[in-house]
Amino acid sequence: MLELRLVQGSLLKKVLDAIKDLVTDANFDCSESGFSLQAMDSSHVALVALLLRSDGFEHYRCDRNLSMGMNLTNMSKMLKCAGNDDIITIKADDGGDSVTFMFESPSQDKVSDFEMKLMDIDSEHLGIPETEYHAIVKMPSAEFARICRDLSTIGDTVVISVSKDGVKFSTSGDIGSANVVCRQNNSVDNKDNETVIEMNEPVSLTFALRYLNSFTKATTLSNTVTLSMSKELPVVVEYKIAEIGHIRFYLAPKIED
């Protein structure tokens, strides 16, 4: 038996909006520690890892580990029926073939339940090694989204270079080229507006902008985003989900032929 009650139901709606275009079907894994998901896009270039820790739920009951295969388009359709202020409860029976989403309005005067069929998904789980990253950039998530969107009007790929001077995003295409440099700044008033660069050694990697643009759909989940990079390794683009967990996107770099 599984019963997870999330008071801030809008978080789940936002999570689905952030991942449903990248991944079609995914297994949600439920254990004592939390509600999680790991899935790759169909071309195996990008991976999303979601964790909602059990202590972030108002009520969390998971009698045994459960993996529930869901079509994210259909799940998103159902969650769209929840109000932004609604409390969402996810319920499932062990070995059942469906999951129920229950939506309660804040004043408890409206309760809805939506039952969705589960599916068998043969998904591959990848081990992601713990890595010391050469450079970690924390910046406002809206700024990162803006840069990715702007540069994708010029080119298809972006070179992200971190040096002691800052982080540089560069692209080029048929009509020309563009560079955006963000320098480290410390905002006294608002930590969310800071750009903070931790660098052990300079790193420069090339990525497809269309994936980064897809990741930025998670911007509504967090005011800040963290980019972790090492030479010749996938970048990690992480959005913290207030008090409850994170969503991490991994993207394989492009390599010069």
Binding site: V45, L47, I128, T206, Y250, P253, I255
Partner: peptide
Amino acid sequence: GSSQTSLRHYFVAT
């Protein structure tokens, strides 16, 4: 030109 690598190149199935 540049070519896109796969995540399978970096992460191993568990």
